[in-house]
């Protein structure tokens, strides 16, 4: 994707930030807020999000490649992944805006929306603000006029193993020297390694590592890695602190296994945003998120969460066509 496809303004004389356009949507930010504008039925609409909230959501959408299904930045704006194309919407999954026909949804080829989002993320993220970090770990540098950039933070890549971290040729275990110090909130997590006794010739097949130590050295929040793969079954553990910056509306069933501490999940109807339940998960709890919900997590202390996904690419259509039950278990 050539950057010439990205429609952006020159930097604002007032605050230094560029504005962007994608399809019928316009984006601009000021010292506190991100503003999204669209026209529907000849009527101009706009939506305002605190810039830090917008940047944290934008960071996940970019880092996850638009993820599985729907990424709601809040109860108005977001994206839906169709794996090759992406819907961008305002109000389409907000019961009130939808009922008044004030919503807009447009579909873009993935490279175009990704390039636009990446450029916007780069331009709107100031030097001292890390949108991947917990609030306690970064600054209020998102406030104010444009002040440098933070490419090192926003260009982190998800760690995706081929089989298991630590095996020959696979993702390396996390160490200080590679930029993975143990997180302050996991300083009490043991880093002892399993005892592994390998007979000659089986070095590539016999392996074990300390998953909890690996997670204790994660340098991001709400950004899963992949640490084991059983065909299309992906174990995607992650460390969570404060609020999941998006409400995730999955296009398939998803499971959460709370490995440490606690996360409270606010679960809503994925089409309208109406509340369904609050799921309080403590260490050792495992629960499904149905395929027709959206959910937002609240983690009062940095916690270890195993997100479990089924990566079968046929699932979105099967669920959308009603050929699979939205609840994974019937009992």
């Amino acid at each position: 994707m050539s950057v010439t496809n990205i429609i952006s303004s020159t930097p604002s004389i007032e605050n230094g930030y560029c504005s962007f356009e994608l399809g019928s949507f316009s984006f601009h930010r000021d010292e506190y807020f991100a503003h999204i504008s669209w026209v529907v039925n000849g009527r101009g609409m706009s939506h305002t999000i605190s810039a830090d909230v917008f940047l944290r959501a934008l960071m996940r959408d970019v880092a996850w490649g638009f993820f599985y299904g729907r990424v709601n930045f809040d109860n108005v704006f977001g994206t839906t992944n169709h794996y090759g194309q992406v819907d961008m919407f305002a109000g389409s999954y907000n019961g009130d805006l939808k009922a008044k026909n004030l919503d807009l949804l447009e579909t873009f080829d993935t490279p175009l929306i990704m390039a636009t989002f990446k450029t916007m993320l780069d331009d709107w993220t100031n030097e001292s603000f890390d949108p991947f970090a917990a609030p306690d770990e970064t600054t209020q540098g998102w406030i104010g006029k444009k002040s440098g950039s933070n490419l090192a933070a926003i260009n982190r890549e998800r760690q995706v193993c081929q089989r298991q971290p630590g095996l020959p040729g696979d993702v390396a275990l996390r160490v200080d020297e590679d930029g993975y110090p143990q997180n302050r909130a996991f300083a009490d997590v043991s880093e002892d390694e399993p005892e592994v006794y390998i007979e000659p010739g089986f070095e590539s097949e016999v392996g074990a590592f300390n998953l909890f130590a690996f997670l204790s050295r994660s340098n991001v929040t709400w950004n899963p890695s992949i640490t084991s793969i059983c065909k299309e079954s992906l174990f995607c553990p992650t460390t969570e602190e404060y609020i999941l910056p998006i409400a995730h509306g999955n296009d398939r069933c998803e499971w959460f296994f709370q490995m440490s501490d606690q996360i409270d999940w606010k679960v809503e109807n994925d089409e309208t945003g109406q509340p369904r339940a609050k799921v309080v998960m403590k260490a050792g709890d495992i629960a499904a998120m149905p395929a027709d919900c959206r959910h937002t997590g609240y983690s009062p202390k940095r916690s270890m969460l195993l997100v479990w996904e089924n990566a079968n690419p046929e699932l979105p259509k099967l669920y959308a066509d009603g050929k699979l039950p939205v609840n994974p278990i019937q009992f």
Partner: peptide, 27 residues
């Protein structure tokens, strides 16, 4: 950091607003 064990764990719960708790297969 709080982990669970066979001898010491605290199970969470579900607060239903408009749903069926079975939807979550929570254990």
């Amino acid at each position: 950091t709080v982990f669970g064990s066979l001898e010491n764990y605290e199970k969470g719960h579900i607060e239903i607003i408009d749903d069926d708790p079975k939807a979550y297969a929570f254990s």
